[in-house]
């Protein structure tokens, strides 16, 4: 546990020193400010537009951690052999990976928390500029649930980034595979539903159906975590869904990290 905590803290510190992080946070805050100004063009839908924009910005900001920092911090650790300075200490490879993942999670949490404050400020600014009557449908419970689920989806992507980094020898390939996983995770549900609908005159080959079936069970259903539009409309996100998705994310990440550890243990760090 001590080793995991030490590696996590080191990774967190290392992540905080990456300038790209501050660029992303600044860009995200600018986008949110822009959303407040632009929302004035959408009378009646002001709160929805602000929320749509700012919640999407939080997710985008969070996504930079697995897609840029995680790969940079893990695959390059192996590529540049920085990992030697850690694994020559009494740290097992599993502890190293779990530590890295937890460090990334801390970083993701911090960035998303910071941007969530931005969401709150955007709504407050909108209310101040356009009046309270446009914000009566805002549901803070739904906003919190949407932000939390967005955090969980980024957590899964962090685990995927760790997983791909241990399987490949190049940081570029690991980035590519993580991006693919994100895209598949977001659209596999739509493709499955499309295949289930009986469209007359369209013949879909059985091999495509099989590939989609494999993708459905191998990749996480990230679309299920995307409830931004529900929150933007001020609708209720059932607690049971949030609890179920939390377990789903937890189990999926544990499985990925266990597999990553198995592969990483077998790997020669020459």
């Amino acid at each position: 546990m001590r080793a995991v905590f030490s590696v996590a803290l080191l990774s967190f510190k290392e992540g905080l020193r990456q300038r790209v992080l501050y660029g992303v946070v600044l860009a995200a805050l600018l986008m949110m400010s822009g959303a407040v100004l632009v929302s004035g063009f959408f009378l009646r839908d002001i709160s929805k537009v602000i929320l749509d924009f700012s919640l999407a910005t939080v997710t985008l900001g969070g996504l930079t951690i697995p897609l840029f920092l995680a790969i940079h911090m893990l695959a390059r650790d192996i590529e540049r052999r920085t990992v030697f300075s850690l694994l020559s200490r009494p740290i097992s490879r599993g502890q190293y990976l779990f530590g890295k993942f937890n460090g990334l999670l801390l970083l993701t949490g911090l960035v998303m928390l910071f941007l969530s404050i931005g969401v709150y400020l955007s709504l407050e600014c909108g209310e101040f500029l356009f009046g309270e009557r446009f914000f009566v449908t805002v549901s803070w419970n739904s906003i919190f649930a949407a932000l939390f689920l967005s955090f969980l989806s980024v957590m899964i992507l962090n685990a995927l980034a760790v997983f791909w980094s241990t399987l490949t020898t190049s940081s570029f390939l690991a980035t590519l595979l993580t991006v693919f996983s994100y895209v598949i995770g977001h659209f596999v549900d739509d493709v499955v539903r499309f295949l289930q609908v009986n469209t007359t005159g369209v013949e879909i080959s059985s091999s495509i159906k099989q590939v989609v079936e494999i993708a459905k069970y191998s990749f996480p259903n990230l679309a299920a975590f995307d409830v931004k539009s529900v929150a933007a409309h001020g609708m209720v996100i059932p607690l049971a869904d949030v609890v179920f998705l939390t377990f789903y994310a937890g189990i999926y990440c544990s499985l990925l990290l266990t597999l990553a550890t198995i592969f990483f243990r077998r790997r020669d760090l020459a």
């Binding site: 080191l10 290392e14 020193r17 990456q18 540049r80 052999r81 920085t82 030697f84 300075s85 020559s88």
Partner: peptide, 13 residues
Amino acid sequence: GYLPENPCLYDSL
């Protein structure tokens, strides 16, 4: 204690 050939430490730290 180990000193690797071409030591790579975290250069941002």
